[in-house]
Amino acid sequence: MNFAVIGVGGYIAPRHLEAIKDLGHTVVAAFDINDSVGILDRYFPDCQFFSQFERFEVFVDGLKGSDKQVEFVSICTPNYLHAAHIKFALSHGAHAICEKPLVLHEKEIDELEQYETRYGKKVFTVLQLRVHDAILALKKKVESNPKELFKIDLNYMTSRGNWYHESWKSDVRKSGGLSTNIGVHFFDMLTWIFGDPVDVAVSEYTPTLEKGTLRLKNAEVSWSLTVDRKLLPQAAVAAGKTTFRSITIDGEEFEFSEGFTELHKRVYQDVLGGRGYGLNAARGAIRIVENIRKMA
Rank of each mutant, 00 (worst) to 15 (best):
E116M: 12
T117W: 01
V123Y: 02
F124T: 01
T125A: 15
T125W: 05
V126W: 00
L129A: 00
L129M: 13
R130I: 03
V131D: 04
H132T: 06
D133T: 13
A134V: 02
A134H: 08
L136R: 15
V142D: 04
E143V: 01
E143Q: 14
N145Q: 15
K147Y: 06
K147T: 13
E148F: 02
L149R: 13
L149P: 00
K151A: 13
I152V: 14
D153A: 09
L154C: 10
N155P: 00
M157S: 07
T158G: 11
R160T: 04
N162F: 04
W163E: 11
W168V: 09
K169I: 08
K169G: 00
S170R: 02
G176W: 03
L178S: 03
T180K: 03
N181Q: 04
N181P: 00
H185K: 11
F187M: 11
F187Y: 10
T191E: 10
W192K: 03
W192S: 13
I193A: 01
P197S: 08
P197M: 08
D199A: 14
A201Y: 06
A201K: 14
E204Y: 04
E204V: 08
P207H: 10
L209Y: 10
E210H: 14
G212C: 12
L216M: 12
N218R: 11
A219T: 04
A219K: 03
E220C: 05
V221N: 06
V221K: 04
S222Y: 01
S222G: 05
W223F: 14
S224F: 07
L225S: 03
K230F: 11
L232E: 04
